[in-house]
Structure formats: structure tokens, C-alpha cells
Design a protein around this nucleic acid. Structure first.
Length: 352
DNA sequence: AAACCGGGGAG
DNA sequence: CTCCCAGGTTT
């Protein structure tokens, strides 16, 4: 195990300078913008996160403006990106920077780590890219690159693996060029040492890559634990009143989509027929004081919405009523609320 | 240590 | 279909 291997860092950075992709956050060292990009890119591909980065930097050019924004505006801008705790933590962290740090971003790993939503990876990324602190990043790319080149079998999601890879990356770090080193190893994993079909033929490390020499590229990195997927059956109720209003409610408490809005719904253990749906609407008092309702099943076969650990089998029901004893909003104002993609897709097809 | 938290794209 | 993406927080 190389304790200090400048050859590796030099070759890696040389490769990076020749091959790096152009990205807007590579044109700045402003920690606010770097932080935004890092939060957005957590567990998110560059192609998916890029439009959100542009939208956020446009809407909130400074951390003060982000901190001062209503949380719902931030969730609305985040809509479709997933992992919505990131958006809530983003808001909280911005307020921390304004309140606790006089609107000046913390300039080192240890302080950055205190911000909500900033863990070891993100603190290392910001500290290295903005402040040249030699803190090694270990993201999915780094696990893959290091496990292959050095032939490491330790599961990357075991507590031992997390420590082992962090130590290895730290030892390889080019302490004179932390920003380039960290971005180089991630870029290398993203476009050269890819999960499937990596380009080993013209890889600068193919003369010493342990996994390549042992034909174990496809076995590394080792990852344990597969999350089990739960099935849920949701019946969303799109209420339409005679005056053109509907009902939307916010998700609170734990679970998915915290803070986002959705139609009232009935969750069941399996698909519901119209009779059982009508019974449940009544027994759960979802439409108080409604005497007569016209029910139309919108989709015959459930719409399957897949989350990382839940599959949602969804039926939308259109319910026409004269009026309703609940807080209502004009149907057309739905588009102002942050909603899950599942709801957004329905709205897009059925409003306007 | 394990569970939880989205959505999308590649192969 | 499976895998995984510039991970972090909670239990």
C-alpha cells in the first residue's frame, strides 16, 4: 500500500486536465456556488442536476437571498430532483451561514461539516475546491476507482470500508493541488472508470490496475446490502367542485415527500374497486358534508411510481362534487405548489 | 449497523 | 430488468 505516491496523483491530474468536461461550477471558487452544486449533485447525475444548479443560482445569487426565501419556494424549485430533505437542509444551512457566520461561508472542513446536509464528502469537496484544504473526497466514483486500481475487496458500504477508502484517498492526495486531485479522481470514475464497460484499453493506469490484471473489473467495488422494495397502494382523489376548486394537502411528519403537496388519498393493502373506494372515502370522512359525488376512475391499471425502496401502485379518482366543507384552492393554482413527480405528471395531463 | 430518503438514465 | 448516480440523517 503506497503511503505517498506522487506518481499516481500526477498521472491522475494530468489525465484530468486533458479530459475534464466543462461545467458551470468549474468556473468559480465561490463557496456558495460550490456548496449549491455539491448538494444538488448528491446521488444525482450531472445531467440531471445541471438545470437545477442554473435555476438556483439564477433565483438566489447569494446565500442571503436563499436564506430569506420561503421554504416552499425552495421546495418548488427543487421539485423533481428527489431526496427533498436536501432542499430543507439547504434552507437551514443557508440560514446558519447568515446567522452563525455573518453571511460568510465557513472556510474549512471542520466548520463546513457543521452545516445541515453537509457530511464528510461535501465538506471535503468545498474545503478542497474553494480553500485548497487537502481533504480527500470519497464518493461513489472514488470507491470504484480505488477498489479497482488497488484491488480492494472491502465492502464500500461497511464501516471498515468507509474508513479504509478514506485513508487510502487521503494518502494519495496531492497536498499542493487538492482541488484538482479531488475533481480528477471523481471525473476519472465518471467518464473513464465507469461502472459498466470501463475503458481499460486506453486507461492511463492499465499497466498496474489490480482488478484489470486479475480480470476482476466487473467484481469491484464490492457492495453489500440490497434494500428491499415495499409495495404500496395509493388512491389519489382529484376533487373538482362546481366552482372550479380542488383540495391539496401537505405531507407532514416522517416518510417520503416531506413538505410537498398532494391530493387527499386513501392507502390500501391492495387495489381498490369503486365500491370499496367509495366506502373508504365515507368512513375516513375525506369529503365532509358531501351528499352526492360523481366518481370516475382515471386510470384502469395502476400507475407504478418507483422510488428507491418503495413501489407505489397508484390509482387516481376524479370526484365531482357541488361543494365541499374543506379548504380549497383554484384548480389552476396547483402549479404554484411543490408536488412529487407522480402528482406533477397527473397535473400536466389533466389541467389546462 | 441498518434503514430511510427520489428520480432518472445506462446497459 | 438491475444498478447507481459529485451522500446524509435517523434509528
Amino acid at each position: 500500500m503506497p503511503k505517498n505516491n506522487p506518481v499516481f496523483a500526477n498521472q491522475l491530474i494530468e489525465w484530468y486536465l486533458d479530459n475534464k468536461r466543462a461545467m458551470p461550477w468549474r468556473e468559480t471558487k465561490n463557496p456558495y456556488f460550490i456548496w449549491l452544486s455539491e448538494i444538488i449533485l448528491q446521488q444525482t447525475r450531472v445531467a440531471q442536476g445541471l438545470p437545477y444548479y442554473l435555476a438556483f443560482t439564477e433565483a438566489y445569487p447569494t446565500v442571503q437571498q436563499l436564506a430569506a426565501a420561503p421554504q416552499e419556494d425552495i421546495l418548488k424549485l427543487w421539485q423533481g430532483l428527489g431526496y427533498y430533505s436536501r432542499a430543507r437542509n439547504l434552507h437551514a444551512a443557508a440560514q446558519m451561514v447568515v446567522t452563525d457566520y455573518n453571511s460568510i461561508f465557513p472556510n474549512n472542513y471542520r466548520e463546513l461539516l457543521k452545516l445541515k446536509g453537509v457530511g464528510d464528502y461535501t465538506a471535503s469537496a468545498i474545503a478542497s475546491i474553494c480553500f485548497d484544504e487537502p481533504a480527500a473526497v470519497v464518493d461513489g466514483n472514488v470507491y470504484r476507482v480505488l477498489s479497482r486500481i488497488f484491488g480492494i475487496d472491502t465492502p464500500i458500504n461497511s464501516s471498515q470500508g468507509i474508513k479504509e477508502f478514506k485513508k487510502l484517498a487521503s494518502g494519495l492526495m496531492d497536498r499542493d493541488r487538492p482541488a484538482d486531485f479531488n475533481q480528477a479522481i471523481m471525473e476519472f470514475g465518471a467518464i473513464q472508470c465507469t461502472p459498466k464497460n470501463p475503458y481499460c484499453l486506453h486507461c492511463v493506469f492499465n499497466d498496474r490496475c489490480v482488478a484489470l490484471q486479475k480480470s476482476r473489473i466487473h467484481e469491484l467495488p464490492v457492495k453489500i446490502n440490497k434494500t428491499k422494495v415495499k409495495k404500496r397502494y395509493l388512491n389519489y382523489i382529484f376533487i373538482k367542485t362546481a366552482s372550479g376548486d380542488t383540495v391539496l394537502q401537505q405531507r407532514t411528519g416522517k416518510g417520503i415527500w416531506q413538505g410537498l403537496y398532494e391530493f387527499p388519498f386513501i392507502e390500501a393493502k391492495g387495489p381498490l374497486g369503486e365500491d370499496r373506494f367509495r366506502e373508504s372515502v365515507k368512513s375516513q370522512n375525506l369529503l365532509p358534508n358531501v351528499i352526492e359525488m360523481d366518481i370516475t376512475r382515471y386510470n384502469d391499471t395502476p400507475i407504478v411510481h418507483k422510488l428507491s425502496h418503495q413501489h407505489l401502485y397508484t390509482t387516481f379518482w376524479i370526484v365531482d362534487v357541488a361543494e365541499i366543507d374543506r379548504e380549497t384552492i383554484p384548480v389552476h393554482s396547483i402549479r404554484n405548489y411543490p408536488v412529487p413527480v407522480l402528482i406533477a405528471n397527473f397535473i400536466e395531463k389533466n389541467i389546462d
